[in-house]
Every structure is written in structure tokens, then in C-alpha cells.
């Protein structure tokens, strides 16, 4: 270990301020440096592309390693296991404003994509088996950070997914949400619906570096809960924070036949194969995004508990299980 870190590490050991936690810090710092060297130079140069607005990406020739200069890597899909524990640098990106939407033929497809996304019940009605719209789980028309925004997803595909154990195209990823989250069936890859959704995503991601995890991707993962998620506690969280909008029975609230507040369980909600039916995804979404407009106000434990409570109710079955029975 012929590294400046070692000297720092040694010097810390001499002083009385030494604390066991420093070891963990030093180890992760070293891992981080390994990561920097490992990440292909191509990624770094793409992150510097003039069209994006990244914070200065980590320089691979970082000489000084103060504890404050956190070790950094750029995350890829899938995250290489050997980098686990190293802090991730995520590149900042903002999608274009709606007003900048083109007006040509491509713009038409983009606009249709947005309509499908925000009003799936109308614009892709034949492919939907519940009462949800894509936007219900991907807020602000698929733009909001930390609610799995489309612009951050688009640049990460094709990608390998554990869920189906192969490399997925972006179309396949969209198809997954149709089949499970929307409890429906996916439009064909060359259908106007699919082309429109891809056009919208592509337009939102315009100028973003590809293959790099952008800041705000997905739902921010929570640390493991301190106490096992508990339905009973979750019910109390639900009654105090969610029932006002989603209804005491979780069935949402409608105005003249349309859901203003979507159903959280039951026949009109996502099915048992959906990402949201996994407690860790639901807890992450809820913590960052609910109650609406008050994201990040529940404690993490409350988010775990209410996610457990939500997913303890009946919902349409996972279609993969139904088939084999």
C-alpha cells in the first residue's frame, strides 16, 4: 500500500485521537481510489461532455486524500460488486422545459408520449388493467428526481436486470411497468404508444451523458430498518398521513370517474409482480415522495412500516405465477 493514504492512516494511528471508525473510513477510501482507477476513462470523458452540466467529475489523478474528499466512483449499470461501499458521484442533469418541446413530427411523438405517461387511462387504455397512470409513481410527468425519472432511466439502457436475468432494452423496461405496475400488457415495440414513450424519454434525456447514473435516478434506497417493518405501526402511519387522500380503505379518491388520488391496493392497483409490491421499493418511493408535497418528512422507519402495511393487502396476482398454476 504505497499510497499517501497509508501515511495518513499511520499518522492517525500514532495520535491519541485514533478511533476504530477511522479504519472503516480508510478502507472505503482505498476502495474508492481503486474504483477511480478501474472506471474506464471513456466514462469520465463522457461525463465532461459539454452538453451536460456535471459538477467537475472526479479527477483520476487525485493526489490528496483528505477524509473530506470522499472517495468517488461513477456508477454504472449494473454496479460492479467490487465498488460496493465506495461513495458514488452522480452527474447533475436537468431535462429541458416543456416549452422547448419541438413542434415538428418528432415533437408530435414526444407530446403523445407525455400524454400517455400522464393519462395512461385515456391514451393507452387498451394496455392497462388497473386504474393507475404512469405518472402516479413517476411524479411531475416523469421528471421529478428521486421518483425514477425517465431522463435518468433512458440513458442507462440496455442494462442487465436481475428480475428477468437478461440484458433488457429500454422498450423491455417500459414493458415491465405495463405488465406489472399497470397490471396490463405491453404495447408492441413498434406500436405508436411505445414509439411515443421512447420519444418522450429520449427528448427529456437530451444532452445527458449516456451510461452514467444521473443524480436523482430511481428511488433513493433506504438503509435497512432498525426494527423489522411492522404492519400494526404502519397502519397508524397510514391513518395519520395517507388516508386523507388515498382513502381510509386505500382505494383512492375519484372525481367524476377519474382518480385524483390513486388506489394503493385492491383490484385497481399495481399487481403482485410490480416493483412497488416489494417493500424496499415502496418504502423508498414513499419516503422520498409521500405525503404529496411533503417528501422526506416521514422517518425511514415510518416509511418501512407503512410500506409493509400497504403491501399486506390483497392486489392482483403476479401474472408470472398465475401462468404456471
Amino acid at each position: 500500500m504505497s499510497h499517501p493514504l497509508k501515511h495518513w492512516f499511520e499518522s492517525q494511528k500514532q495520535t491519541r485521537k485514533f478511533h476504530p471508525a477511522w479504519i472503516a473510513l480508510a478502507v472505503s477510501a482505498t476502495l474508492g481510489v481503486a474504483g477511480i482507477i478501474w472506471v474506464p476513462a471513456e466514462l469520465v470523458s463522457r461525463a465532461e461532455a459539454p452538453t451536460a452540466h456535471p459538477p467537475p467529475p472526479p479527477a483520476a489523478d487525485n493526489k490528496e486524500m483528505h477524509p473530506a474528499d470522499m472517495p468517488t466512483v461513477i456508477e454504472q449499470t449494473p454496479g460492479p460488486a467490487r465498488l460496493r461501499g465506495a461513495k458514488t458521484i452522480r452527474v447533475d442533469f436537468s431535462p429541458p422545459a416543456d416549452a422547448a418541446m419541438p413542434t415538428d413530427e418528432f415533437g408530435e411523438a414526444v407530446r403523445l408520449g407525455k400524454n400517455i405517461f400522464t393519462d395512461t387511462q385515456t391514451y393507452a387504455r387498451g394496455y392497462v388493467g388497473n386504474k393507475l397512470n404512469c405518472v402516479n409513481c413517476h411524479l411531475d410527468a416523469g421528471r421529478k428526481r428521486d421518483s425514477a425519472p425517465l431522463w435518468a432511466a433512458y440513458v442507462m439502457f440496455p442494462a442487465y436486470r436481475d428480475k428477468n436475468k437478461h440484458v433488457n432494452s429500454y422498450e423491455e423496461r417500459l414493458a415491465g411497468c405495463f405488465r406489472f405496475s399497470m397490471n396490463g400488457k405491453a404495447p408492441a415495440p413498434d406500436s405508436k404508444e411505445m414509439i411515443a414513450l421512447i420519444s418522450y424519454s429520449y427528448w427529456l434525456a437530451k444532452g445527458a451523458p449516456t451510461g452514467i447514473a444521473l443524480k436523482g435516478r430511481g428511488y433513493p434506497k433506504l438503509a435497512d430498518p432498525q426494527q423489522p417493518p411492522d404492519e400494526g405501526r404502519g397502519k397508524l402511519v397510514f391513518e395519520a398521513n395517507c388516508a386523507l387522500c388515498h382513502g381510509a380503505d386505500g382505494q383512492g379518491t375519484q372525481v367524476s370517474g377519474r382518480y385524483v388520488f390513486p388506489p394503493l391496493w385492491g383490484q385497481n392497483s399495481f399487481n403482485g409482480g410490480a416493483g412497488m409490491s416489494q417493500i424496499k421499493n415502496a418504502a423508498a418511493f414513499i419516503h422520498a415522495n409521500m405525503p404529496l408535497g411533503k417528501g422526506n418528512t416521514l422517518s425511514e422507519q415510518q416509511a418501512w412500516d407503512v410500506a409493509k402495511y400497504m403491501n399486506s393487502h390483497a392486489r392482483p396476482p403476479d401474472p408470472r405465477l398465475a401462468k404456471s398454476s
Binding site: 421528471r143 421529478k144 387522500c245 385524483v260 404529496l292 408535497g293
Partner: peptide, 16 residues
């Protein structure tokens, strides 16, 4: 549409 850069949802998301 609201102003999500400041976490303000659309008024109509709650007011219908």
C-alpha cells in the same frame, strides 16, 4: 404542473 424544483405539487393534484 406545480414547481417541482422546489417540491411544490400542482394545485390541481390536490384540489382536483
Amino acid at each position: 404542473s406545480g414547481n417541482w424544483s422546489k417540491d411544490v405539487p400542482a394545485c390541481f393534484a390536490c384540489h382536483g
